[in-house]
Structure formats: structure tokens, C-alpha cells
Design a protein around this nucleic acid. Structure first.
Lengths: 246, 246
DNA sequence: CGTATAATTGAGGGATATCAAAACCGGTGG
DNA sequence: CCACCGGTTTTGATATCCCTCAATTATACG
């Protein structure tokens, strides 16, 4: 991972790929996303990227962030994950913040958002794709609610994995089967609302059942069919995710 | 409850009140919300208002709706509540739908949304208030994630009650202490991700602890201070909610 | 190598679910 | 007025999922 702070060429890879997955976009159209090189920041693990209620939106270019909320007694809930290509905005609660779950890099999102506003008339497909991506983010929140409210630990974990494979596939970071897996089990347990111990047993079970394999920061899905069925993924969501694979 | 279908005068009471709670709005400004009388519909309990992925947005004028998701095995999660003054849009999953949790009335939201777009230039305060309301809805989703992922049954229930008192207060349907309570315990358990039996015991406990009282479709908060502290409400959210009381 | 962090395993307890039945309640019809 | 009815609330008993505590093993890193 790069550890320098400074200027960089437009690092829009994952974002471009994500948008292209929502609407067929020509190279010319994607050019409308280009904005002048802007400051980037490197965040070590556990660094706070945006503090509760304040700060300008940032675009993640590498690493994973979590929009977290911490209770007075120390319980922590990660409400939402931001992956490369995602834009994180200031979390809306005093006790919430965007935190680097892995070492990560972000750039100021303002120029990109600016470019998107220009694209509204100049490249309407890009604008549409952006809105589709925003709508998908909304769906992720609802999916998270389903996971936490209605699924067992086993289903919950499978469901999140299916979602993350889908997201990484959209942004060109997975082939639909294998993806980066940089999370500690502690972070994962804070996403899924499980104790770290129980999460560990759940992951072990998923491996024993030959649904996934995890080695050296990489997760591989062994049997997407069965995994998705365990995960109780919605028809619409599943279609969305797998459409990308072809 | 009215059981007739037909035309009605603009039924914007709760919506107007809600928007006014986000930005001081003069009567003149509120007029920009007025739109021609439009069709309304009456929905009996359990009626589907919007089917998964399709249908035009509707404004709730009375009764409570739930944006629900049903799993193949029958488990149901209510992801989000729509109260009078809220606009429900087509839920984004194939297996999700907006359902009447009580008998309810809705009108087509298109004219209202139209009026709001006009207000963007003619009454910017109204436009701003609308966006503040949308942002608040987003916060409710995040709060729901916190509830389901990190709070105990007791805290979870308290938290939801605090939220609902706040929302009803904004829309003029509560004084900050007493509010309509039309939900069956079954619906409530599907919101909170609890079994109906355990929810019942939890409510009983909240009553024993003199935090709330429930009688004849009305809920009264006995001790908001303690309830809010049990509920782990975030500083920002709490400020928002109680600001309305004065 | 030694230290810190993360992953894993074991044992026991607590919170919540499930099953079953009883009490309650508003409406309906005799 | 009373009996009855479906839906809802309440209570009891038992099972299970998941948490907590504690210790051990693996892995990264200087």
C-alpha cells in the first residue's frame, strides 16, 4: 500500500467500473468523470476519516471504510461499508464516524461530484448510472436491516458475502467468485451484530460446508448457488449482482 | 376511519407540520405545497399499498404503513415505517412491498412532488425542509440498523418508541409524550426483529419500570429522560427530536 | 526471537425463540 | 342480554442460539 500523501492522477478505476456496470458507458462518456488531480489521503487502520456530522465527502480509492456508531458502553455497530469506488459522506450522528477498517486511501469527492453535475447534461448516461449506484447503496442499507433483523448468524454472514462479492464485481475487483478480504473478524462481527467468537464459528462452519474459502486476505466462493440460497438474497438483488458476471 | 374512495381537499396536515418542523415556514410558504385535490385510496389492514419494485409514490395521510420484506419461509421484516406525512416509494426488492399495518389512507404523491419541485425556486425554505426530511428518513434507516445490530430487546423497543414519539411530534400528532399507538404486537415484533412473545414481555417490562403506558391505542411516555437513556439515542438525534417540543 | 494482534477452541450462562395454552376483547348474531 | 367468534395479548415451560469469559494457537512484525 502506498504510504505517501500528495497529488495523484485521477484514480477513478473502481468508480468508473461501478458506473459502467449500471449503464453501458462508452470511453467518451467515462471521460466526463475525469477531474483534475486532487489531494489524496492515506488512512492507517482504525483512523477516523470523517467525524460525526462534519467534513466533506470523500471518494475511496483503496481499502475499506466503515460507517460506524459507538455506544457509550463501547458497543460498536458498523452500519455500512464503503469500498473502493464508493463515496462516503459525513455520517449524520454525533456518535458516528467513518473509520478505516483497513489501511485505505481517499480523495476529496468534490471534484468528482462536480464532474457528475456537469455530466447531467453532457453525458446523461453517466448521470443515470450514478443515480442507479446511489439507489443501490440505499438497497444495501435495507439489506443490512434484513440481515440484522431476520437472518440467523449463518445466513447473515452468507448474505453479506454475497453482497460484497457483487459489489466488488461491479467495481472490477472481483470476478464474481474471488475477492479481496481485508477485514478482521472483529470488524466483521461489528457489521453483522455478532460476537467475534460466534462469528468465527460461523465462518468456520461456512468453510466446513464448502461454501467459501478464506486464505491470505482473499475470499473465494466455492458454491455461489448454495451460498446465495443460504443467504436468502432477494430475486431482484440477485439478478442485479449476477448480471455483471456475463 | 373513513371507508370511502374519492376526491378530497388537499390533506397535507401532517406533511406541512413535518416540514415546518425542519425550517420555520410561513403560511405563505406552506401554500406552495398545495396541489389540486387528487385521488385518495383507503387501505384496510394488511392491504398491499405498493408491490415490490413497481408503482408510483404515495403520500400517507392517515394510518401507518410498513415497508416489509418476506422470506421464502415466511419470516417477515418491516424495514421502515411510513407515518402520516411520509411519502412511500416503490420498495426496491422483488420480495418487498409497502403494507398497511393499520387501516390507512394515501393519496398520489406525484402532485405533491411536483409542487415541491416548483417550490425549489419559489419557496426555497420549503425545498430545504423537504430535503431535511429526506435526510431524516435516511437517519431512521441507520437507527434501525443500530437497533437491530447492537441493542438488546429492551433497549431496542425503547429506542423505537423514542423515535416514533419524535416523528409524531414533528407531524403534529403527538405532544412529545402521548401518541397514537395503532400497531399490533405482531407488527411491532416484525419491526424490531423479536418474537412476538418476547416483545410482549419486553413491553410489559417497560410498563413495570414506569417508562411507558399503553391503553386503547394510545402510548404515553411516563419518563422521557429515562426512556431516552435506556434507548441509547444519539446526541444529534435527541437534539433533533426534542427541539420540536418547545 | 519476542511481542502484539488476530484467529481459534472450550465451557458455561443468559437472552431470546418456540410451543402451547389460557385470558382478553371487540364485534356479531341469536 | 348472552354466547360465540376471530384476533390479539398474556403467561408458562422448554429449547436454542448466541454471548461472555478464559485460554490456546497462529500470524505478522520489528
Amino acid at each position: 500500500m502506498n504510504l505517501v500523501v500528495g497529488k495523484s492522477a485521477p484514480p477513478l478505476g473502481p468508480l468508473e467500473s461501478k458506473l459502467a456496470s449500471f449503464a453501458a458507458l462508452s470511453a467518451a462518456e467515462l471521460c466526463h468523470l475525469r477531474s483534475e488531480p486532487s489531494d489524496f489521503q492515506v488512512h492507517p487502520v482504525r483512523a477516523v476519516v470523517l467525524e460525526g456530522g462534519a467534513g466533506a465527502a470523500r471518494l475511496v480509492t483503496s481499502g475499506w471504510l466503515g460507517c460506524t456508531r459507538v455506544l457509550p458502553d463501547g458497543r460498536r455497530q458498523i452500519m455500512h461499508l464503503a469500498l473502493p469506488g464508493d463515496v462516503v459522506t459525513a455520517p449524520p450522528f454525533a456518535d458516528s464516524s467513518a473509520v478505516a477498517l483497513t489501511s485505505a486511501r481517499t480523495v476529496d469527492a468534490a471534484p468528482v461530484l462536480q464532474a457528475l453535475r456537469r455530466a447531467r447534461v453532457e453525458a446523461p448516461n453517466v448521470w443515470r448510472a450514478w443515480h442507479a449506484a446511489q439507489a443501490e447503496m440505499q438497497r444495501h442499507l435495507l439489506e443490512q436491516i434484513l440481515r440484522l433483523g431476520s437472518l440467523t448468524a449463518y445466513e447473515r454472514t452468507a448474505n453479506l458475502i454475497v453482497e460484497l462479492v457483487g459489489r466488488n464485481t461491479r467495481s472490477g475487483l472481483s470476478d464474481g467468485r474471488v475477492m479481496p478480504w481485508p477485514l478482521t473478524q472483529e470488524a466483521l462481527s461489528d457489521i453483522l451484530g455478532l460476537s467475534i467468537v460466534h462469528l468465527n464459528r460461523t465462518l468456520t462452519q461456512l468453510r466446513r460446508d464448502r461454501l467459501i474459502e478464506i486464505r491470505a486476505g482473499v475470499l473465494a466462493v466455492c458454491d455461489m448457488e448454495r451460498l446465495a440460497s443460504v443467504a436468502n438474497v432477494s430475486a431482484l438483488a440477485a439478478a442485479d449482482g449476477s448480471a455483471r458476471l456475463r
